[in-house]
Amino acid sequence: MTQPVFWALVGMALVVIGLYGLIVHAHLLRKILALNVISSGVFLVFIALARRAPRDGAAISPGPDPVPQAMVLTGIVVAVAATGLAVALIVRLRAMTGRTTLGDEADN
């Protein structure tokens, strides 16, 4: 197993763990943490597979590919913003209802 594949698998594992957490936990903060775990996993996959796939005749440049790194940076910024927005909304929800879970109105 090459190193990139290993890290990609780790990333996928993170995604799966995060998804599990997102579904299982009702507490909204945990849901947000789970989302962050998922995003870390996605970023890890992105970076790990950053090397362009070997194709016949194409010269593979040594060293990491900078483009995905830039993209992941953007992704991290987006994830932070999402977390901030979600936390703000949760604080608001708690202030209004005292709950930190989503209600039952999602029945259907």
């Binding site: 998922i38 996605v42 796939a53 909304l89």
Partner: peptide
């Protein structure tokens, strides 16, 4: 507010899945 939170969670999750696909496509 709870509608918004649910919407935000779903939206971010969907986008992350999409981004995962982008990563794989970039790999390919």
């Amino acid at each position: 507010v709870s509608g918004a939170i649910r919407y935000l969670l779903v939206s971010v999750l969907g986008s992350l899945f999409y981004l995962l696909g982008v990563a794989l496509i970039y790999h390919a």
